[in-house]
């Protein structure tokens, strides 16, 4: 079966700065794929090109065979982006936010109402759905941010650090939602996070980006076996030790 998401030599330059050199990646239909990398590694740039927000300097990104740059409208219909920022209108209620984002994908009338009900249920926000989002807690906003990208039932969901700043309850709720997206709705998830344990928990396969290049891509078990180093002997190696072994221990402050 061909991969749902496929990038070939996908790269982006900002002037003389190479943000992403040339990414070759394949994400299979129905899987939760983890994309890791330190700050400034090129994760957000890669995601932005995959969903058509940023135009690539070179290479291609295809979703279900559709070139995101050449067939942007058809390709974007298949993608649901959940940005790292809380991309919501805080003055509006959850229902109003979802109504607008659903409208962007051509949903209206009874279909839109049904999808809004479904999304509110999924986010656990039904009871406070008419309140302005500004009154929500951080976890509630994160859950709404997540479901706002799912209204049109995309085949590929791109989650850019969806659990930043949330409490364990909301994080668990988000995890359960992501698993349900795959198992119950057949969606494919590309998941980025700084939290290694999250990726280890959710994803079978992981790609590690560093300095604009994909330096490792395999199953979590394979990466731990190959790059866990001495920690395998001392204590059970995990994805974090692999990540640090591959990307180094120095601080990464570049944007």
């Amino acid at each position: 079966m061909p991969p749902l998401l496929e990038t070939r030599g996908l790269g982006k330059d900002y002037g003389s700065l190479c943000a992403l050199a040339g990414l070759d990646l394949e994400v299979e239909e129905g899987e939760i794929f983890g994309l890791l990398g330190p700050n400034g590694a090129g994760k957000t740039t890669a995601i932005s090109m995959m969903c058509g927000v940023v135009t690539p300097s070179r290479g291609t990104a295809r979703v279900d065979g559709l070139d995101v740059a050449r067939q942007p409208l058809s390709a974007r219909r298949l993608i649901g982006l959940v940005p790292q920022d809380l991309a919501l209108y805080e003055e509006l209620s959850a229902v109003q936010n979802l109504g607008f984002f659903g409208g962007l994908y051509g949903l209206h009338g009874a279909q839109l109402s049904g999808r809004i009900d479904w999304a509110l249920e999924l986010a656990g926000l039904r009871e406070r759905s008419r309140e302005p989002v500004a009154r929500y807690s951080g976890g509630m906003k994160r859950r709404l941010n997540l479901v706002a990208g799912l209204l049109h039932r995309p085949r590929l969901v791109i989650l850019d650090e969806p659990t930043v700043g949330v409490d364990p309850q909301s994080r668990n709720h988000i995890f359960a939602t992501i698993r349900a997206l795959c198992t119950e709705h057949g969606m494919t998830v590309l998941y980025t996070s700084h939290y290694m344990e999250e990726v280890e928990l959710l994803c079978r396969r992981v790609g590690i980006l560093d300095r604009g290049a994909l330096i490792a891509c395999s199953t979590v078990d394979d990466l731990v076996a190959r790059h866990g180093g001495d920690e395998v002997v001392v204590r059970k190696a995990n994805l974090e030790s692999v990540f640090l072994a591959l990307t180094g221990h120095r601080l990464r402050d570049e944007a």
């Binding site: 058509g52 409208l73 058809s74 974007r76 940005p83 920022d85 991309a87 984002f101 962007l104 051509g106």
Partner: peptide, 14 residues
């Protein structure tokens, strides 16, 4: 600033 513009650009809208 709020990131909603990214959502707009990611939607199937020219």
């Amino acid at each position: 600033r709020s990131g909603t513009f990214r959502r707009l650009l990611a939607a199937p809208v020219r």
